[in-house]
Nucleic acid binder design. Sequence first.
DNA 1: ATATATCATCGTAATATTGCGATACAAAAC
DNA 2: GTTTTGTATCGCAATATTACGATGATATAT
Lengths: 108, 108
Amino acid sequence: MGLSKSEVFSDADNRMADLAKAFAHPARVAILRLLAQRKACVCGDLVDELPLSQATVSQHLKELKRIGIIQGSIDPPRVCYCINEQVWEEAEEAFGGVFALFSKVGCC
Amino acid sequence: MGLSKSEVFSDADNRMADLAKAFAHPARVAILRLLAQRKACVCGDLVDELPLSQATVSQHLKELKRIGIIQGSIDPPRVCYCINEQVWEEAEEAFGGVFALFSKVGCC
DNA sequence: ATATATCATCGTAATATTGCGATACAAAAC
DNA sequence: GTTTTGTATCGCAATATTACGATGATATAT
């Protein structure tokens, strides 16, 4: 298949999974680190920092934009990407919430 | 392709991506929530809680075990799964570290 | 021994992801 | 208007993921 049955899961779990996908590839982790630290901003600079082709980097940026965790503002002919603060915090809280669920006392 | 060029990325970014994969599917998020809250433990109970077949749940459990975030102890014929505290904390710290990188003052 | 209960694995099918070269596109510079 | 620069998109190939029925494996119960 390859088709996740998203209809049958809760909105929260689906959103969480999408937010996690932003971090589920090393290239995207590297991109998010660079943007969070403001070490790079312009698409071309990101391409220089990464061992991937321009087309591939652009595709990862597209996926991050779909999730909403980054946004791009055009500055022709350049595009400047940055973290979307609101979604970044949404992700921080979502992960924080799940990690907080764990209680050490237990059965196994 | 479908082959992520993991050799060219840092170990930290690769590990982070792997930890994120644990949360990158709604079924796995649901499983981790159940285990973290001790609402279910035995594989069969997880299957009852999830809208997926036993084979599919078992496959997700295998992936979570590969990442290391859960562990299973056999109690024949049952298998009890639980969060691996060490890896859970590793994930918590890894995500915390990345989220902390973001500084609001910036260019875009 | 045979049956039962529980879980893992196999095999298969469908869709998704990753990667890149080539090309299209948009705005500025000349 | 042509060129240049920077980015997005298309098309393709290869691998990965998701899902499930069927089957296998394992240990208890009868």
